[in-house]
Amino acid sequence: MKQLLTNAALALACGFLGAATWSATGLADKRTEAYLMENPQLLPAMAQAYEKQAASDRLAQIGEQIYQPFPGAVLGNPDGSKVLVKFTDYNCPYCRVSSEDVDALVAQDPEVKVIIREWSIFQGSEIASVMALAAAEQGKFAAFHKAMFELAPATPETVREAAERAGVELERAQAFGQSPVVQAELRNNALMAQQLGFTGTPSWVAGGQTFEGAVGTSALQAAVDRES
């Protein structure tokens, strides 16, 4: 961690301090290094800024693709001006908690559009993700999403019950779940999560920034408000 902070600080120092130059070997100027050694309190803030910029760069590399949902896999206002992207897993306890935060956010802000990206990283959860996308194809995503978290963990029995609660046509859903478009969506979501540097669920994109964890409704509101 100390080395990470030092490397990040040295990289940023050239831009922030303006006093440093880079040597032919790629090492920071001795004046910069000495300055940072004399002012170690700068390192955490500079490392944080470095990581924030790196995350922004990773998001920019993905581009608008991150904001293009699987058809129907959206909560809230599908035409909302404030967009929140959530990478989630039905067997993740923190995702279950954060689903309530998202519900509260949608209830209090009619301009919020929540794009759900199914990212199955917990054992046994992919069956629920597949059914969720099948429910989206039938216009029943929100109902299934809510029911699945209420019935979690995901098992063949709970997935079926959630689908029935949501009014999903099971035969049609089973056929659609085997289509290449579903597997392509799941692979794409996993790839984007990897590119963004996410380490688990729930993970989020909003206001041009990425963040992780069950952060609460207030933090989610602040994040989507950065875009407006």
Score class of each variant (00 low, 15 high):
residue 36 L to Q: 01
residue 198 F to R: 05
residue 212 E to S: 09
residue 181 V to C: 08
residue 8 A to C: 09
residue 205 V to A: 07
residue 196 L to N: 00
residue 40 P to Y: 12
residue 44 P to M: 05
residue 180 P to D: 09
residue 46 M to Y: 01
residue 55 A to V: 00
residue 116 I to A: 06
residue 196 L to K: 03
residue 196 L to M: 10
residue 117 R to G: 04
residue 143 A to Q: 14
residue 142 A to S: 12
residue 224 V to N: 00
residue 31 R to T: 12
residue 3 Q to T: 12
residue 206 A to K: 00
residue 11 A to H: 13
residue 5 L to T: 01
residue 159 V to R: 04
residue 175 A to T: 14
residue 176 F to M: 10
residue 100 E to C: 01
residue 35 Y to D: 04
residue 214 A to C: 03
residue 59 L to A: 04
residue 188 N to P: 02
residue 133 L to V: 00
residue 202 P to K: 01
residue 184 A to E: 12
residue 211 F to T: 04
residue 32 T to Q: 06
residue 226 R to W: 10
residue 133 L to N: 02
residue 46 M to W: 15
residue 228 S to H: 14
residue 211 F to I: 07
residue 7 N to L: 12
residue 117 R to F: 06
residue 172 R to E: 09
residue 157 E to R: 15
residue 38 E to I: 08
residue 28 A to C: 12
residue 136 A to I: 02
residue 29 D to V: 04
residue 222 A to Q: 15
residue 131 M to W: 06
residue 149 F to C: 01
residue 178 Q to F: 09
residue 111 E to D: 12
residue 57 D to F: 10
residue 164 E to S: 14
residue 111 E to I: 00
residue 210 T to E: 08
residue 53 Q to T: 06
residue 194 Q to N: 10
residue 62 I to N: 11
residue 25 T to L: 09
residue 141 F to K: 03
residue 93 P to Q: 02
residue 103 D to H: 14
residue 26 G to Q: 03
residue 184 A to N: 07
residue 52 K to L: 08
residue 106 V to Y: 10
residue 224 V to L: 05
